[in-house]
């Protein structure tokens, strides 16, 4: 545990080191969020009655999305890990006496956590100060806020385990690059990163909410705004836990299989 903590500190210090990168990143995400909100504003103006949630709830959703981008962006995968798979260095790591799954998992977790911690506060602060209905709202209730934090963490763990799974799958495919690209664009779409899930047609939305992708950003960001009923929230948390267990388990199994394959083939 101590090992992981010092690793996190190192990552965080590295993030601070590149302050221009951090400022640049914050400015980028802020602009991106503002542009998204303007698109939705244009649609809202055209037909407010067709909006599935209030405009200010949509704005809050988009700001939270930008603030915690590093928690959920599947395209922020660890380049080192991918490179090691492409050039074959991964073989050495698989043969070491440490669990490669745990290592990759903690690496992904600490990278995402340090990135988000560094960037979320400025974005949240500025967004909260913006005039209504463009700014970030307060959470629906203290209970919603607690639940938001809980599902946020679950969503983060979900993202990390899904990314590790993709890394391991890449090991079995001939085109890790192609796999990564298809995977990231698909998750972006199904997780509600491009368009929040409530904007989808209702029957499509019902299916999408059952998929593992919805267990990432969709749940916490919608709970924050208070647009889910008590029953829906219970179901969502249950699904998050279910998918997290399932994906982690699958990843671990495949990891063992990959290691076996390497030892059998002799590297």
């Amino acid at each position: 545990m101590k090992k992981y903590l010092s690793f996190f500190r190192l990552r965080f210090a590295m993030g601070l080191q590149y302050r221009a990168a951090a400022f640049g990143g914050i400015a980028t995400q802020f602009t991106w969020g503002a542009m998204e909100i303007m698109i939705f504003r244009a649609f809202y103006r055209s037909d407010a009655s067709a909006f599935p949630m209030s405009f200010s709830a949509t704005a809050s959703y988009l700001w939270l999305q930008q603030a915690f981008l590093a928690f959920f962006a599947t395209w922020m995968m660890d380049g080192d890990i991918f490179d090691s798979i492409v050039n074959g260095d991964v073989a050495y790591e698989l043969c070491r006496p440490v669990s490669i799954y745990n290592m990759w998992f903690s690496k992904g977790l600490s990278t995402r956590l340090s990135r988000a911690v560094l960037r979320c506060f400025p974005i949240l602060t500025v967004a909260a100060l913006l005039p209504q209905p463009y700014g970030l709202n307060a959470p629906a209730s203290p209970m919603h806020f607690v639940l938001f934090l809980l599902t946020l963490i679950l969503g983060l763990l979900m993202t990390v385990s899904l990314c590790v799974l993709i890394c391991i799958l890449a090991f079995f495919t001939i085109s890790p690059m192609g796999l990564q690209m298809v995977f990231t664009s698909m998750t972006d779409f199904f997780a509600g990163a491009l368009i929040p899930l409530p904007f989808f047609p209702e029957n499509v939305q019902r299916v999408m909410e059952l998929l593992p992708f919805a267990a990432m950003q969709n749940v916490p960001l919608r709970i924050y705004g208070g647009s889910m009923s008590c029953y829906e929230m219970q179901k969502a948390v249950f699904l998050q836990i279910f998918w997290l267990t399932a994906i982690t388990f699958t990843g671990k199994m495949l990891c063992r299989l990959a290691a076996k394959r390497i030892t059998v083939q002799g590297g």
């Binding site: 664009s185 779409f189 491009l194």
Partner: peptide
């Protein structure tokens, strides 16, 4: 790898359209 990456490129923009 080349063709799969090209297919990946195709899909990336396709989700933008879907949105």
């Amino acid at each position: 790898s080349f063709f799969l990456t090209a297919a990946g490129q195709f899909l990336v923009s396709f989700t933008a359209f879907l949105g």
